[in-house]
């Protein structure tokens, strides 16, 4: 009896998988993604990239949740964050994850970039992936900056004041930069609306597809790049080149030649 149920379940599962494969090609795509060979050496180093992705996904999830209560107006913003922290169930956790994963994100991105830089992973044919990565890095920095103001407390507010003042020192366009950022000539309701729009809609909308491009380029060229994954092959290459050099200079016995073939 149990055997028959099991067999039927397997059969149904197979049919379902076949149907999905036929209609979408998703199964073979999954197979291709899951069973692609990747270097065994340095596998732990390559978790930095996926950790970045994971933290950004956490940002998206908790950010969307925070929007259920957050009100982006100067007279309600602080109160709504206070509500999230003290009244909403698990509000402290949801905002805590948003806050702490943002902090981890900055650190992990730094490590990820350092890893890429020192292993020379930006070299051809992966130049564009480096460029996209730098754009993502800048987007995350601006996200961190704009998100800080949203809670409308002293810490975030004054940090933004300093940041906006820094913008005012842009050569030639300083005044325009400031007026664009604060939406007027003094910090007020318009400033919060703008930072909210930039933090919640504009930048995530740019970030998400660029992450897609980053991952696509990664799959296209493979996640290789560090020479230390190739130490054995490089050693073999060197050895062969050395032998050839020797052969070119002094010639080799017939039997030696045969052995190498």
């Amino acid at each position: 009896m149990i055997g028959r149920v099991k067999a039927q379940t397997v059969e149904t599962g197979k049919l379902l998988a076949d149907w999905i494969e036929d209609r979408t090609g998703a199964v073979s795509m999954m197979e291709k993604f899951l069973y692609e060979p990747v270097p065994k050496r340095g596998a732990w180093l390559y978790t930095l990239g996926s950790a970045t992705l994971f933290l950004i996904v956490l940002q998206f999830l908790t950010g969307i949740l925070l929007l259920f209560y957050y009100v982006p107006t100067v007279d309600h913003a602080w109160n709504s964050v206070y509500y999230i922290m003290n009244e909403a169930y698990f509000g402290q956790l949801i905002r805590g994850i948003h806050y702490w994963s943002a902090n981890f994100l900055m650190a992990v991105i730094g490590l990820h970039m350092a890893r890429t830089f020192f292993s020379g992973a930006y070299k051809a044919p992966r130049e564009l992936n480096w460029v996209v990565g730098v754009v993502l890095f800048l987007l995350v920095i601006v996200l961190a900056f704009t998100g800080y103001l949203l809670r409308w407390d002293q810490d975030g507010f004054w940090a933004s004041v300093v940041g906006i003042k820094i913008g005012s020192y842009s050569p030639f366009i300083g005044g325009y930069v400031v007026n664009f950022l604060i939406g007027g000539d003094v910090i007020g309701p318009a400033t919060l609306s703008r930072f909210f729009a930039i933090h919640v809609w504009l930048l995530p909308a740019i970030l998400a597809p660029l992450i897609g491009v980053h991952l696509y380029l990664l799959r296209r060229h493979g996640e290789f790049g560090s020479e230390f994954e190739y130490t054995e092959r490089l050693a073999k290459l060197k050895e062969r080149q050395r032998l050839e050099e020797y052969e070119r200079r002094y010639g080799l016995g017939e039997e030696e030649e045969e052995r190498r073939e």
């Binding site: 325009y176 007026n179 664009f180 939406g183 007027g184 000539d185 003094v186 007020g188 318009a190």
Partner: peptide
């Protein structure tokens, strides 16, 4: 806001 303040010379205050 930029056009109103910088070009037209209006102020929010």
């Amino acid at each position: 806001p930029l056009i109103k303040t910088e070009v037209e010379g209006e102020s929010d205050v």
